[in-house]
Amino acid sequence: MAILEVNEIQYAYKNGQPVLSDINAEFEAGKMYAIIGASGSGKTTLLSLIGGLDIPQKGAILFERENILQRGLEYHRRNHVSLIFQSYNLIDYMTPIENAELTAKQNVLPILERLGLTDEEVKRNVMKLSGGQQQRVAIARALASDTPVILADEPTGNLDEDTAGGIINVLKESAHELNKCVIVVTHSNELATQADIIFQLRYGNLYTI
């Protein structure tokens, strides 16, 4: 059963071309989805609509069959979805533990450890970690917040190939072992092949591959 549904979504930026013309998709828990598409095709736009950062001009996004506008986008962001960005978006004056604790509903240490951060690293200034480690902290924050959906926008964009592979694995495990619904936006076809289901965004429409 789909945990997240995207129904007939249309979106255009103010005084701009329509970016999304008619998007329909369903997402289930325990699966990893990849959305690929050329640069500028609207992947980030779509993800931010699903993530409750903006509202589509037409159509609806349902979480467990309920329109996310029902309880408000803030509620949606806090309780339903976690966002992971290419630039990690960590808080620079907090340690990895504290970053993960920001919205945590559970003990963050085991999560950070399982993601491969050492006891010393979790207490370090978060800006003094490598890119891959920082992205793991962001993922730990998402996992600790207990949201059923994880949305990742180019999570490996700033990382070398090996590190990127590690991150994708962590996301895949989160879907398969922790029963999360993981949606990863990427322009790398290679990484996309790791996903259970791949969508392609083209000309404002979403196609299953």
Partner: peptide
């Protein structure tokens, strides 16, 4: 601004 955006994306009011 960055920090504020992150907090907002995390659903902090």
């Amino acid at each position: 601004i960055h920090e504020t955006g992150v907090f907002l994306s995390l659903g902090i009011a």
